[in-house]
Simulated assay, not measured.
Amino acid sequence: MIKHVVAFRMNKELSAEDKNDAMHKMKTLLEALPPKIAELETVEVGINFNPTEAAFDVVLTTTHVSKDALSVYAGHPEHLEVLAYIRSVISDRVVVDYES
């Protein structure tokens, strides 16, 4: 099993309300992907409540049966559409992919 973990930091220029709206929209969009992408086994999206500066705002964890399935997911048009929105509201992200 492959796990894909991405942490996102929202754009600091967003107001508190816009940041909250954007985080929840990201969550909704990401959680809607599994029925659209066969290579996407599971999706979990968490919105951070830790107020420290070191914390990121949103975390995504997906699972895939293989590295190839992860690659198909990454390039899938439905995923790319969601990714375009995410890139418009974030300032930073970190990614870890590993085999479990």
Score class of each variant (00 low, 15 high):
Val89Trp: 07
Ser71Met: 10
Asp18Ser: 11
Glu53Gln: 05
Leu29Phe: 07
Leu30Arg: 02
Ile47Met: 10
Thr52Tyr: 00
Pro51Gly: 02
Leu30Ile: 07
Ala22Lys: 07
Met10Glu: 08
Glu31Asn: 13
Thr52Asp: 05
Glu41Phe: 02
Val58Met: 06
Leu40Ser: 06
Leu30Pro: 13
Ala16Cys: 09
Val72Phe: 02
Lys12Leu: 09
Ile2Tyr: 12
Lys67Asn: 12
Ile2Val: 14
Glu78Pro: 00
Glu99Ile: 03
Ser71Asp: 14
Ser91Tyr: 07
Val5Lys: 02
Val5Asp: 09
Ala84Phe: 05
Ile90Lys: 10
Ser15Met: 09
Ala55Met: 00
Asp21Asn: 10
Ile2Leu: 10
Pro34Ser: 04
Thr28Ile: 10
Arg93His: 15
Asp97Gln: 00
Leu70Ile: 04
Asn11Gln: 12
Glu53Lys: 02
Pro35Tyr: 03
Met10Ala: 13
Thr63Pro: 03
Asn48Gln: 05
Leu70Asp: 04
Pro51Leu: 04
Tyr85Ile: 08
Ser66Glu: 00
Ala38Ser: 03
Met23Val: 11
His4Asn: 09
Val82Leu: 08
Lys3Cys: 06
Arg93Cys: 06
Ala84Thr: 15
Met26Phe: 10
Glu44Cys: 08
Leu83Ala: 13
Lys3Phe: 03
Asp68Lys: 11
Lys19Gln: 14
Glu44Thr: 15
Lys19His: 07
Thr28Lys: 14
Thr61Phe: 02
Ile37Leu: 00
Tyr98Phe: 13
Arg87Ala: 06
His76Pro: 01
Leu60Trp: 00
Asp18Gln: 15
Thr62His: 02
Thr52Lys: 01
Ser71His: 13
Glu17Pro: 05
Tyr98Arg: 03
Val43Ala: 07
Asp57Trp: 08
Ile90Pro: 13
Thr62Ile: 01
Tyr98Met: 03
Asp21Leu: 11
Val58Glu: 14
Ile90Trp: 10
Asn50Met: 01
Ala84Cys: 11
Asp18Asn: 14
Leu80His: 02
Arg93Thr: 09
Glu39Asp: 07
Pro34Asn: 05
Asp18Cys: 14
Thr63His: 03
Ser15His: 12
Glu13Gln: 11
Val59Thr: 13
Pro35Ile: 03
Lys25Glu: 15
Ile86Glu: 10
Tyr98Val: 07
Ser71Trp: 03
Leu83Gln: 15
Val94Cys: 13
Ile86Met: 15
His76Val: 00
Lys12Thr: 11
Leu70Gly: 04
Phe56Lys: 06
Arg9Cys: 06
Asn48Glu: 04
Phe8Cys: 06
Pro51Phe: 03
Asp68Trp: 05
Lys27Cys: 15
Tyr73Asn: 01
Pro77Arg: 04
Asp18Glu: 12
Glu41Trp: 00
Tyr85Lys: 02
